[in-house]
Structure formats: structure tokens, C-alpha cells
Amino acid sequence: MMRGQTHRALVTTLYIVFLMLPIYWLVSMSFKTTNEILGAFSLWPQDFTLENYRKIFTDPTWYTGYLNSISYVAMNTVISVAVALPAAYAFSRYRFLGDKHLFFWLLTNRMAPPAVFALPFYQLYSAIELFDTHIGVALAHCLFNIPLAVWILEGFMSGVPKELDETAYLDGYSFWRFFIRIFIPTIAAGIGVAMFFCFMYSWVELLLAKTLTAVDAKPIAATMTRTASTSGYELGLLAAAGTLTIVPGAFVIYFVRNYIARGFALGRV
């Protein structure tokens, strides 16, 4: 038994080390000077510097990228979950004309490769004058986040016994009053998980976000791409910007860590 335990701990540890190595390299590079990076190979920063971070926090073209990303991700998360809530309730509680087909159709949008839609999206959002706005990117990301939110929330809602609804209606609650006062608090965990996933997919997506923005709403990840190509190879700066994009994700994971596993199973295990 003891030997089995050690083996298992070893496998888990090795896997986590494998996950952490590239991240370590990125972080360590962000503390190096360009000279050191291009000069000699070193396992950790010999000439420790915070210059790369200082540049990002003082240069508006850099830090506005973060603010842009965070604003459209937040808008998208709120919109997606808000409209997905009633829809998920309908799918989990009622049968109606075309419900199964509608559900599959919603899921197909999660399957559409963004590369397919890049050009039409550019034209559509230019036509309705939402090009290069935060709300434009937030709406575009609804394409894959709403289906996902509906899928996750429906799973969680199906786990709530129907007697809860029936009792509330007998007590004279109207639908919306029941929904907001009783039902939403009951599935708070599910809402947390759905928000986590919307945050995650909106935060990591770049192809659409980049296509739909030019200056005012440019995401941080796109700023990085531009720097890599125009100002030569400022690897240290790039590494620092990359490190900072990991931070919000790490925060969010920490807060929802107990629900992650359930959410990945879409509440339906």
C-alpha cells in the first residue's frame, strides 16, 4: 500500500513539474535584461531587474491593453450568464416545440471554428458600428460563451428537485419572484462555475478579439503580438507581459477551486 502511495504521489508531482517548467521559464525571463537573455544561457536571472514590469505599468499602450481585456471579458461574462439563466431554466424544466434541436443548434456554435467567422465578423461589426469597442468584442464572444453557459447551468439546474418550484408556486410566488429570490441563490455554485468558464474562454480567445479591434479596445494579448513583430525581439518585455496575463486567471482559479472539477464535468457527472 505504501509503495502504491509513493508511486501515485510521484506521477502527480512529475506532471505538475512538467506543467510548471515553461511557466517558470517565462517568469524567470521576465526578470532578465535583454542583454542577459540574448547573451549567455542561465537557469535563473543573474542580473535581476524589474525594468520590464516598470515599462508595462507606466506605458499607456501596455496597461490599457489589460484594462481593455478585463472590460470586455467582464461585460461578456455578465451578458452571457444573464441571458443563459432563464434559457437554462426553460431547458431543464419544460418540454417545448423544437427544444432538443435548439439545444443542439446552440452547441454547434461552440463547435464553429473562429477562423471561419473572422472575416464576416469584421464586416458585421463594422456595419453596425461596434468595431473597436469593448461591447463589440463582448457580444462577439457570446457566440461560444452563451451555449457553454446554457449547457453548464442546465446541468446544475437539473440537479435541483422540481418540488422546490412547485412549493414556491403554491405559496403564491410569481415566476420571476421565485426565480430571483429562491432559485438563483439555490444554484449559486453553478452560476459561479458558469461565470468562471465564460471568463476563461473570453480571456484566452484572441483571433476574434484581435480581428474586431484596432486601437481603443485592443486586448493585451494583441499588444504583445504587435511588439514581437515591430520592435525587434524584446523578449524580456514580452515575458513580463505574458506573466501578467497569467495573474488574473490564477486569482479566478483560486476562488473557484472547489467548483472547478464539477464545472468541467458540466454539473452532470
Binding site: T12, Y15, I16, L19, M20, L21, P22, I23, W25, L26, M29, M200, W203, V204, E205, L206, I220, A221, M224, T225, A228, L235, L238, A239, G242, T245, I246, P248, G249, A250, V252, I253, Y254, R257, N258, I260, A261
Partner: peptide
Amino acid sequence: VSVCLVLMALPLLIPWNVVGAMWNIF
């Protein structure tokens, strides 16, 4: 358990181009 979950979920929350850039310099 929490430590494992947090560390393992980390790669999933890194913007995709940062993943590419990170592996490039790695």
C-alpha cells in the same frame, strides 16, 4: 487536493498566444 487543482488548471487560463510565445522561448 486544492493545490493540485489550482496548479493543474493554470495552463487552461493562459491566453492562447501567450501559450505559443511561452513555448517559443521555452
